[in-house]
Design a protein around this nucleic acid. Structure first.
Lengths: 329, 329
DNA sequence: CTGTTAGCGCGTTCAG
DNA sequence: CTGAACGCGCTAACAG
């Protein structure tokens, strides 16, 4: 492994000069800049991230915080897209990433978590799938010890940005598509988790739709659980012309209930997970571009890391929508 | 953040002494050891991984190399289990992990990859889902620049270990369960990818079963593709009493084909992905404990990193089998 | 048994 | 515009 020292020697300049061209500092003549760059290329040199992190203290190292222990593995797909989206963008921006699971922070105090992250020279964090029940995370954010970007949740302070897509609009849109062409007078909406940010946003969306189309609307909380959606549908399903769910899994539960009751109504899900293609029923859903959202989160984090102040970033829904799908199998 | 210097001062000893108790070196009196530990606790001190890595050169930093760009997202579930299994074990062994996707190494030469990894102070790599087509990875292994553990594939050299479960036995076992109680005289086996290690092992297993039970056996390569499995089943399915597939996805394809042809034969998959529970058909499968396998891989990597020599580790199938399932929906 | 010293690879003043 | 010198937090000989 060639180090910065080798490059300096090879280019016939001082180490600090190499460092300057590496980090795009001014006050380096075009001539030496070129010599240095040539040396870098010839030696196949890549700066040692670790050493840079140690030295600079103002690193581009950040952690991706992913929640794994949720009800079902169906969301692995979403997590993976978050992961790869963030990592690709990180590479593009030359940031350093490490992956952390919620489970690794469990039964740790706030202090321990902070110390752990600092010991890793972590400067920023991107948090996915956060719910209001994650009190330690909330404290972590409030502590403002790190630059943080929260995806699909709304918390903003000096050092914290939120990045989310317009869930209300998305819900409005997909539900509208789902009922297109049917004679619909009322909607059964099965919402997500109590206190969930996306849950509330989506409820706004469906309420707006009901209002615009002058439809009756019943809202039940389904906790993102397939079983609960099933039970709710069993109870109310046959009285409503369409069932709109805040997740695909719940849509599957609802559809199964309908099938069992031998009634047919359109069912609409949310997220567009692969599973939807395998249940053998026709349903509607939206597929979000999670990789893209995640990339935007990294962008925002970089802003924060380079001195930006926390803010609320609402991604245009059009940008993250992959496609509507009528999924049939 | 308190550093080792603070601890030394607080305990009234030299920095190196702190380092020694930290790393469990001998030649430190019980008395000072205690004083140091007290200071560590009081200051809430955690060693800086980054600095340690820089200094020691003999790091416990390793990379998890995951393949994402495969045919279907159904394997996200498996990847996630690999990931979390490895990370948890890494934490247990106090090793440092970073996650890398195959896609991040694409269109990179061997040299570039090596340099990149070295620039991250990476000493070891765990490779999942490797196929024989990944020539650059093969070169990476041959270069012996890193300690490497290959999961579910067989490559061993001085610095490379293989960790795999007894796929032959697993395939034998699950297929046997699948045909239990049926009057079976022949088997259609839909295998995985040409040249794949697990593919070949599983074929051994099914051959053994056919031999033991004196059954006719037809083997077709399905490339782990649902569609190919479907086509193969269309062609040969009705002539065979049972269809055994090397993956769940292929089992689904096969089952769909049978349904379309309106014939019923038992179908047997492999891996036990969640999807299996949603297709509404009864099938057999084995669920492997991928997290555990991944943890074992980390164990083996640690062996290598601490001077061990590459070897072949065959995990007892019993240890990694989660359960047999007759999946019905 | 303990303290001193010299780096690891790099960023960053501050004189030239 | 350039380079010597120091330090980041830690490990590893080497003295004492």
């Amino acid at each position: 492994m060639s180090s910065i020292k080798d490059v300096a020697k090879h280019a016939g300049v001082a180490i600090s000069t190499v460092s300057k061209v590496l980090n795009g500092y001014p006050n380096v003549s075009e001539d030496t800049k070129k010599r240095v760059n040539d040396a870098i290329r010839e030696l196949n040199y890549v700066p040692n991230t670790i050493a840079a992190a140690l030295s600079s203290k103002q690193t581009g190292r950040f952690a991706i915080l992913i929640n794994l222990n949720t009800q079902t593995q169906a969301i692995d797909e979403i997590n993976m897209q978050y992961l790869s989206g963030a990592m690709n963008k990180a590479r593009e921006l030359k940031l350093d990433v490490i992956t952390i699971f919620y489970s690794m922070l469990q039964d740790k105090s706030l202090d321990e978590i902070i110390v752990y992250l600092k010991s890793q020279s972590i400067a920023g964090i991107i948090i996915y799938q956060m719910s209001k029940d994650d009190t330690v995370l909330k404290e972590l954010i409030d502590s403002q010890e790190f630059k943080i970007v929260v995806v699909d949740s709304y918390i903003v302070n000096e050092n914290t940005s939120s990045v989310w897509v317009d869930q209300a609009r998305a819900q409005y849109d997909v539900a509208k598509k789902a009922i297109e062409g049917s004679d619909v007078h009322n909607i059964l909406y099965i919402a997500g988790k109590e206190n969930g940010f996306v849950t509330e946003e989506r409820i706004k969306g469906i309420k707006q739709l009901a209002k615009d189309l002058k439809l009756d609307l019943r809202i039940e909380k389904g906790e993102f659980s397939e079983l609960q959606a099933r039970n709710i549908t069993m109870q109310y399903g046959k009285d409503y012309d369409v069932i709109v769910c805040a997740s695909d899994l719940m849509a599957i539960g609802a559809m199964n209930a309908l099938t069992e009751m031998d009634v047919y109504h359109p069912v609409c899900g949310f997220d567009g997970i692969t599973l939807m293609g395998y249940v053998g029923k026709q349903m509607h859903t939206v597929k979000q571009n999670f990789s893209h959202v995640s990339g935007e989160a990294v962008n925002e984090l970089r802003e924060l890391l380079s001195g930006g102040v926390g803010r609320n970033v609402v991604l245009d829904y059009e940008l993250v929508r992959l496609k509507y799908e009528d999924i049939i199998c």
